[in-house]
Design a protein around this nucleic acid. Sequence first.
DNA 1: TATGAATGAGTCTTCATTCAT
DNA 2: TATGAATGAAGACTCATTCAT
Lengths: 212, 212, 212, 212
Amino acid sequence: MKQDVEYKKREQLIETAKREFLEKGYNKASLRNICARAGVTTGALYFFFKNKEELFAEIVDGPLRGLRGLIVQHFREDSEVMSGIATLNDIDMDHSNESDMFIEYIYCHRDSFILLLNSSENTVYENCVDEFVEMLEKAVPMMMSGMKGYTCDAYMSHWMAHLTIDAFINVIRHIEDAEEAKRRMRPILNYLVKGWLDLVMVEEKHEQKREA
Amino acid sequence: MKQDVEYKKREQLIETAKREFLEKGYNKASLRNICARAGVTTGALYFFFKNKEELFAEIVDGPLRGLRGLIVQHFREDSEVMSGIATLNDIDMDHSNESDMFIEYIYCHRDSFILLLNSSENTVYENCVDEFVEMLEKAVPMMMSGMKGYTCDAYMSHWMAHLTIDAFINVIRHIEDAEEAKRRMRPILNYLVKGWLDLVMVEEKHEQKREA
Amino acid sequence: MKQDVEYKKREQLIETAKREFLEKGYNKASLRNICARAGVTTGALYFFFKNKEELFAEIVDGPLRGLRGLIVQHFREDSEVMSGIATLNDIDMDHSNESDMFIEYIYCHRDSFILLLNSSENTVYENCVDEFVEMLEKAVPMMMSGMKGYTCDAYMSHWMAHLTIDAFINVIRHIEDAEEAKRRMRPILNYLVKGWLDLVMVEEKHEQKREA
Amino acid sequence: MKQDVEYKKREQLIETAKREFLEKGYNKASLRNICARAGVTTGALYFFFKNKEELFAEIVDGPLRGLRGLIVQHFREDSEVMSGIATLNDIDMDHSNESDMFIEYIYCHRDSFILLLNSSENTVYENCVDEFVEMLEKAVPMMMSGMKGYTCDAYMSHWMAHLTIDAFINVIRHIEDAEEAKRRMRPILNYLVKGWLDLVMVEEKHEQKREA
DNA sequence: TATGAATGAGTCTTCATTCAT
DNA sequence: TATGAATGAAGACTCATTCAT
């Protein structure tokens, strides 16, 4: 009974913090203001959270780790599938399922991800996007490594990774409904996959000619 | 003669402001600090500029307008060229020249554009990127309007515009040298143009089938 | 059985408080911190102690009263011995035993005394040293009162008392080992006793001359 | 004319700060309070001084450096005088002049020194007394080095230095009038000098006996 | 006995801006 | 043109203490 009340205050605080951070960004968000809006004294906030940063982390860290985990796991599974494939033509061009899954997860915590994308300046999270770019940049070439006769162009791999992540970010930022987001993401992703195959995968003959 | 001295102070102020804004972002940048670094009193700053925002604008507004103008003019010229083209196959697939020109201009004022991209939070410029997306999003379909048998998918046009702009931003952010930037941009742009043609331009028959 | 546990908490609290007070001084010591270090909740602290000052007192008051008692008793005994002495020459110049006894007691509670000396600002104890100076300042002349032909210079008595106490304080502060402290204190004390006799005890003739 | 007003505010600030620091000690002194008492806004304080610490330093640093300089210079001169002396008996036992000079200087800035002695906890100055002890501890033996047949007992030198400084501190703390302070200091200093000669200077024969 | 959530006044400090000179 | 003193609100954060449970 009392616990309900107590938890309610903590939850209240998180909820108002989320709103304030979204509206003003991390820096301009005012703890005083958050407390006032949550009907709580400043001291109370510092009972629940060590810091402004920790309050932000509370909102954002869980979903971020979750997504990270999801991606790692997904790449692992994908690697296994790919290990049985030898030519470009055998690659399944439909990546809707994967795309859907990521969107699904992200939209369960959309506020948090919007926060990370738009309002995490001066936070340890301010470069969190780079991490995902890097993961993608390294994962794809690895998955392709079994394909005979092709090598990866590292530079294009980097840029395709960037573009791919940017595509997700655009969707997350501008589409509110998860189902619509999924629907919109699918054709874009297919286009991007083609990019990976056309620009990143280089026929080795071609490559040798160049070097020659 | 005296004017020289004065102008020097103004110039000094702008130079230090640029550095401070780049290092700390608009919000965290301190006018006091800027003045101190420039060897100028706070009062002096307020003689030259109305306030913090106007100081920021001084650095950023010129290049921004310049780029805007360049783009508008370019689209106008391109429209004329395109008006003589009737089929997709006739389109010149090499857009290196255009890409080069934009990069060239941007890199003449790279500091300013980096400022706009990374440090314009809480400024009227904070959404300036959207404007360019919008320009592109609308311009391309217009240019294509002469092409018989095709219509534009508005939605994909939006996303391709976004991706295209993002591609430029990635390059600007991460590559310091103008020539290298041009070189890297070309293949990416070509890939993107293919995207425009494949995803945005829809054969009308196809379209009718779908709708049927 | 349960009492054991409780007492353990109290004891824990005192122990951590001692450390915290020593490290940060009375003011900067944080009750929160003390509780955390002791693995106890803030509420618990307030069950055992009325407030911050009383927690400090708990550590410090016992030893302080003990020392006070020891000194009073010692002066009483010394007075009796001195009542049988009529000339300066008969005074026992070796005060090692007394010095040793005080050092012995103080070093049994050295932490507490260090606390009193270094970390009692803004406490009722912050001037506790003065009390000892005063005791000494008054006791010595009283003990000497039986000596015919001499009077006490009140002013010099005050300063010698101060110097004597300061000498003890220096030792307590800077020497950790009790035995070494005793050893170091002895020659200093003998020098100080000579000071008492030379500066404080004034031959009455001399005195009359002066006044004449 | 305006300058008068401006300087007055700064001076006012320093004056009130001095009072506040004296009354409450460095930590408990409140900048808000100081500003209010000085009839100045908080911002103003931070125009004149970088910090709480710097405000404190402003009051205290000058006098401290002055005293340090005075002592260094004095020791240098004394060394020259002593270099012409070979036996203990030739030493001038009257050190009134020196004592007077130090007291004179200190009492010109007595507030500052009281601050240093009583209210500098948690400041870089909190151990400033030790420095003077050390200077004295090292200087005296050096000055005595010319004396044949004697060596210095390092330990007693340390304690005599401590006692000597403590004696000064007692006077400064408890006597308000400079002239009275001088008068009181003289006999004490003479007593202390005797201590230096008796306890610190050891006849080498004696020393050798001991070692034998 | 003991918890731990909550208080609320208080801390030092920073800032963009103003204005008499 | 330019100074620089001064403003005053706001910032994050800390603290000893209380009290219903």
